[in-house]
């Protein structure tokens, strides 16, 4: 499915009848550094999520990331402009309902939305809402749990509340995967996890993408986005600040810094070395390529040898 944003603006204030409230909100928030008069969460955002791509979304808190992704399955409708799925406008209720079955939205801390008595029933919630026959529901629940590395027979009858935090998040993931979405939209999927589970989840997400799913991932970690995304969208104060490949987006570390983001560590380090006169030709560096090029620049070893250790640093 192709999701297209056409000149989308979204205002918290919404209709004019709520202007007064907006005025107040603005007054109350102005002291906290939000630009006065700024009640737009999104401003003139145009982009297309291409089928099969991995789109990373970056931006500091309050840049509009969460609002943006809630447009993707019609939870929120643009104040101006429109969002379409394969050309159909999501403002139409029926379109939105059917798009919700094809665009799986995983909220931040999704384990906070678990509710059923058993893991099985929780994962089955989406498929059952889709009015699928029970044997199809069963198949999907089992497959979804398997995808996140859990066994329906082993864990299905347990209460989701008895599981560990990491397992709960897997179950919550499975709840969305069971709807068999074409597009998976993830809001900070690894927030609050320890490094090991973080690596596990990122590998999981990469495998979904590898199996053909379109993935949109919001993240604070530029390293994760650089490693996984085909394209990265950087939002700042509700506007598109940058949209392009990781190499294009991370090329200008100084500009990113101005909107409160830092380029990935290898990229930042590479540009520091470049300033010091190192010839580092690549547009985008990770640890392994950076080590190899530095070695080459210093004439050590055979620079092309890939570092056995460094590349695996991010699991």
């Amino acid at each position: 499915m192709r999701l297209a944003f056409e000149q989308v603006s979204y205002s918290y204030a919404g209709a004019a009848s709520r202007k007064k409230k907006a005025g107040k909100k603005e007054k109350r928030q102005a002291d906290w550094g939000n630009a006065p008069g700024e009640v737009w969460a999104l401003r003139n955002v145009s982009l297309t999520v291409e089928p099969g791509e991995f789109l990373g979304v970056a931006g500091h808190t309050g840049s509009g990331k969460s609002t943006l992704i809630q447009h993707m399955n019609g939870l929120v409708h643009p104040t101006e402009g429109r969002v379409t799925a394969d050309g159909a406008d999501l403002v139409d209720k029926d379109v939105a309902v059917s798009v919700r079955q094809r665009v799986g939205l995983v909220f931040q801390y999704p384990e906070n939305q678990l509710f059923a008595n058993t893991v099985y029933d929780d994962v089955a919630y989406g498929p059952r809402n889709m009015k699928l026959p029970e044997d199809e529901v069963d198949r999907r629940v089992r497959e979804a749990l398997l995808l996140v590395g859990l066994d329906a027979d082993e864990i299905g009858e347990r209460s989701p509340f008895d599981l560990s935090g990491g397992q709960q998040r897997r179950v919550a993931f499975a709840g969305v995967l069971a709807m068999e979405p074409e597009v998976l939209v993830l809001d900070e999927p690894v927030a609050g996890l320890d490094p090991l589970s973080r690596a596990d989840f990122l590998a999981l997400i990469a495998s979904f993408h590898a199996s053909g799913m379109t993935v949109v991932m919001v993240s604070h970690s530029m390293e994760d986005l650089a490693a996984l995304a085909d394209r990265i969208l950087v939002l700042s104060e509700g506007r598109v600040f940058a949209l392009g490949t990781p190499a294009e987006v991370f090329a200008d570390a100084a500009a990113l810094k101005a909107v409160g983001l830092a380029a990935p560590a290898p990229q930042t380090f590479a540009s520091a070395l470049r300033e010091a006169g190192f010839p580092l030709p690549r547009a985008l560096y990770d640890e392994a390529t950076l080590a190899a090029d530095i070695a080459a620049a210093l004439g050590c070893g055979d620079g092309a040898a890939s570092a056995p250790d460094g590349g695996g640093g991010r699991g």
Partner: peptide, 21 residues
Amino acid sequence: LSLEVPFACRLSLALRAAGVP
């Protein structure tokens, strides 16, 4: 111990492996 390693350390190890002292 499933802890991360700081970037500079990761890179310096990769560099050592590539023959940079």
